[in-house]
Structure formats: structure tokens, C-alpha cells
């Protein structure tokens, strides 16, 4: 269960978010525009303004501000970004329903391109763009849309949706007739949208001044590869073990082909950064062909999942599946480099022994740390006497420490994380002791 502290911090975060989202309505109440609308008219307008407000603030949630992430973890900010779209879609669709009321049927003829006057058509196109964005993001995997294509279209489509909606509100809206309200609202809304420039223009500009190079490429079991990256002409960055960075390979950080990956190396080895990446999509499969000397750019570090958030724990428990072991590896390597003497446990699910990541490095770490590694294999080899199948509550019961206050880290495929998080909750592990981050949200 979440602790009171978690809930308070979450409440403050959400309270601030709601206040920012409501600001346009507060502005319209403080400096009222012309009256004359009935209840349905006013409600339709309010929903339109709220939809634009939420759409514009989506750019804040994804602007990679580190200070936005703490109470929850960066992944939950992205999850919220994704789920709040439900509200945006509902508000945007209800907006014409309330405004047109019984003449909605007649207004439907405006859906034919070219049929509506431009101030209305811009709203209709904004809604189409919004629906396309939402469907592409919610169903990306089912539609087998490649991540790169999705990411390339997501930003421009989002900007188009919100700019069209803003234009629609300025041209068709009744409530923005007073110039001061109009300009205040426009500046406020465009301010959020401008944050897109931070990620797509200013960040790449800053990254270009701090290039990296791939100094080593190590093939790993299970179609994975480790890229060793070193800063060129600058001092790189310090990170906490368990964090991640956005990697761009190639001569320009503007290419837009950046991907988030967990750091695998020890925080004590900075500025050298190792990323261990499993080949799952086009980009990651291409990594197997990367050669040393390849220019690269790293935007980071990000993420709140780290042993350093729980320095006083009696020990750390890592529950990992597949490449989810990568951030755990960084934390274990860091602990070993620090000469940590506490007892730690890694429960690690893999498909088969020959495809298990870090088998030998983990063995080596066991000699430097008080570390027990429990491999759970989906398809164990003949004569395997260890754990097999998928992670279960019974397995956790068998291996988890029953004394002391530990910090728990869960990283892996979604079904595994669901089982682990539910099982840990049933075992009475408070949510504040549990850290997990997942990034396969789209």
C-alpha cells in the first residue's frame, strides 16, 4: 500500500497539475467575456478549453524535466501522459455535442473535408489528429507500427493537433473576444507547446557540443550487445546506478532516432557508460553491427530508480526478467565497487540458460558481494535443479528475506512486473520500499 508520504506527494503533484490545467477557466471567470450562452453552450466551451489545456500540458510531461519525476518515477509521468489522453479525447468529443445540441446531426455534414468554414474545420482536423495520435499510441504494437515511425510522427502530429485547436478557439470561440484574455490565454498555451522545442531543438543543440564515442562493442548472449561509450572532449555525466539515458547513434543528434536505455555499468566507473541492449526492434537489431569509433550522443541521466534512494536498507532485492536485469546490474556493480557488505538477492527470469544475460559477470559479482543469484528459466536444460517456469508468488515466498527492511527493485516485461508487484504487496512490502520503472508504454 502507498504510505501517507507517497500519497501526500502524489496529491501535491496532481493538485498543481489540476491548477495549471484549470488556469484558462479561472482566467475566463476572472475577466468574463460576453455572456449569452446557455448551460450547454458554456459547458461545451469549458470542455473545449480544458481539452486544449490538457493537450498543451502534455508537452510539459514529456519535456524531460527531472524535477517532474520524483514522487513516482519517470515511467509514471509517461503513464499519466498516456492515460490523461482519455480525458482529452472525451472532452474534445463532448465539446461539439454540447455546443450543437439537437443540431449536431446537421453539424455532422461538416465532417466532409471542405464542407465546414475554416474556423470550424480547424477544430475538426485537430480532433482527427488527436484521435490518430491516441490510436497510434494505444495500439502501436497491435498495429505493428515501428517505434521509430511512431516517434517521428508523434511530436509533429501532437503540435499540429494543439495548434489547430488553438486556432479554432481563437477564431470560433466566443469567450476569447477581449484582447487581454485572448493574449494571456494564447501566451500561456503556446508556452507549453514551446516545450516541444526543448526536446527536439535545444536539447540536440546542447548534445552536439558534448559528443560521445563508442569505444567498445561486446556481443552478449540472447541477441544482446553491450556498447561502451566514452565522452569526447568533455567530462560526461555522473549518474546514480539504476538510471537510464537516451542514446543517439550517428553524426547528428537531430536525427530524431534516440532511444532510452538503462545504464549497465557501475556509477563508480563514470564517465565511462556501458549500455547493454537486447535486439528487439529495427534500431536495436542494427546495434549488433555498430563498430568502435562510431559517434554517439547521450542525453541523461534520467530516472529515479536507484539504490541511493534507500541508503539505509538492510539489503537490496532485485527481481528482474530478460533485459530488465540491466539497471540491476549497474546497481550490483556499484555496490561491489563500494565494497558493500550487506546481503543482496537477485531473482532473475530468462528464457533459457544459454540466452541468460550477465551469467558470468554475475558469478564474478557473487564473489565480491554477499549476493545470492536465483535463476528462473522458462525452458531449463536437462537436469536443471533450479527454479523454472515463470515467476510466482510461491517462488517469492521461498527466496525473499523474511527479516530486516529491504528495498525492492522490479524490472522486466510487463506481465512479470505485474506478478512481482502484486506478490510483494501481498507479502506486506510497503510501496515506498518498492521501486520499478517500465518504458514499453507505447
Amino acid at each position: 500500500m502507498p504510505t501517507l508520504r507517497d500519497l501526500t506527494r502524489a496529491g501535491l503533484w496532481l493538485g498543481l497539475y489540476v491548477l495549471l490545467a484549470l488556469w484558462p477557466l479561472l482566467l475566463l471567470l476572472a475577466a468574463p467575456g460576453p455572456r449569452g450562452g446557455g448551460f450547454a453552450d458554456e459547458l461545451g466551451s469549458a470542455l473545449g478549453f480544458l481539452a486544449i489545456s490538457l493537450m498543451a500540458m502534455q508537452f510539459l510531461l514529456t519535456a524531460r524535466f527531472e524535477w517532474l519525476a520524483p514522487p513516482f518515477g519517470t515511467d509514471l509521468v509517461y503513464a499519466f501522459h498516456r492515460h490523461i489522453t482519455i480525458a482529452v479525447v472525451v472532452f474534445a468529443l463532448l465539446h461539439p455535442v454540447f455546443l450543437f445540441g439537437s443540431s449536431l446531426g446537421m453539424a455532422l455534414s461538416w465532417l466532409i473535408p471542405g464542407a465546414a468554414p475554416w474556423e470550424i474545420a480547424s477544430g475538426i482536423w485537430a480532433t482527427w489528429a488527436l484521435l490518430a495520435l491516441a490510436v497510434a499510441s494505444w495500439l502501436r504494437k497491435r498495429l505493428t507500427l515501428p517505434y521509430e515511425a511512431w516517434r517521428w510522427t508523434h511530436g509533429p502530429l501532437a503540435a499540429a493537433a494543439v495548434l489547430l485547436a488553438i486556432w479554432h478557439a481563437l477564431m470560433a470561440g466566443r469567450l476569447l473576444s477581449r484582447p487581454v484574455v485572448r493574449w494571456l490565454w494564447l501566451a500561456w498555451t503556446l508556452g507549453w507547446v514551446g516545450l516541444l522545442l526543448r526536446v527536439r531543438v535545444f536539447k540536440p543543440l546542447a548534445l552536439r557540443r558534448r559528443p560521445w564515442t563508442v569505444s567498445e562493442v561486446r556481443p552478449e548472449p540472447g541477441d544482446a550487445v553491450t556498447l561502451v561509450l566514452e565522452p569526447v572532449g568533455h567530462d560526461g555525466f555522473r549518474f546514480r546506478s539504476g538510471q537510464f539515458a537516451w542514446l543517439t547513434l550517428g553524426a547528428s543528434p537531430f536525427a530524431g532516432r534516440e532511444h532510452p536505455f538503462s545504464i549497465a555499468s557501475s556509477a563508480m566507473a563514470a564517465p565511462r557508460v556501458e549500455l547493454t541492449i537486447k535486439a528487439v526492434g529495427d534500431f536495436t537489431r542494427g546495434l549488433l553491427a555498430v563498430k568502435p569509433g562510431q559517434p554517439a550522443f547521450l542525453d541523461g541521466p534520467f530516472g529515479t530508480m536507484s539504490i541511493d534512494a534507500f541508503p539505509d536498507a538492510d539489503g537490496y532485492v532485485f527481481i528482474a526478467g530478460g533485459s530488465g536485469v540491466v539497471p540491476c546490474m549497474s546497481m550490483l556493480r556499484t555496490l561491489a565497487d563500494r565494497g558493500d557488505r550487506r546481503p543482496h538477492l537477485l531473482l532473475f527470469g530468462s528464457s533459457e540458460l544459454s540466452r541468460t544475460l550477465f551469467r558470468e559477470p554475475l558469478q564474478a559479482l557473487s564473489t565480491r558481494l554477499d549476493l545470492r543469484v536465483v535463476h528462473v528459466l522458462e525452458r531449463p536444460p536437462e537436469g536443471w535443479r533450479g527454479e523454472q517456469g515463470y515467476l510466482t508468488q510461491a517462488m517469492l515466498d521461498r527466496w525473499l528475506p523474511h527479516r530486516g527492511r529491504h528495498a525492492y527493485f522490479v524490472c522486466g516485461p510487463n506481465p512479470m512486473m505485474d506478478v512481482a508487484e502484486a506478490a510483494l504487496a501481498r507479502l506486506g512490502v510497503p510501496m515506498s520500499d518498492l521501486h520499478s520503472e517500465r518504458f514499453d508504454l507505447v
Partner: peptide, 30 residues
Amino acid sequence: MRQRLALQAALGTGAFLLLTALLFAAARAS
């Protein structure tokens, strides 16, 4: 479970905003 919390937070926020839109409309309707 954390993911469910994010969904609940988003839906709760949406519901709250809908309520404020109703209040806004009630306050302004002629």
C-alpha cells in the same frame, strides 16, 4: 499496481476537471 495508480490518477483528474467544467457552466450560464 503502480501503473494502475497512474490510470486512476489520470481518470480522477479527468473526472475532477469535468466537474469544474460543470461548475464553470453553471456560474456563467445566463
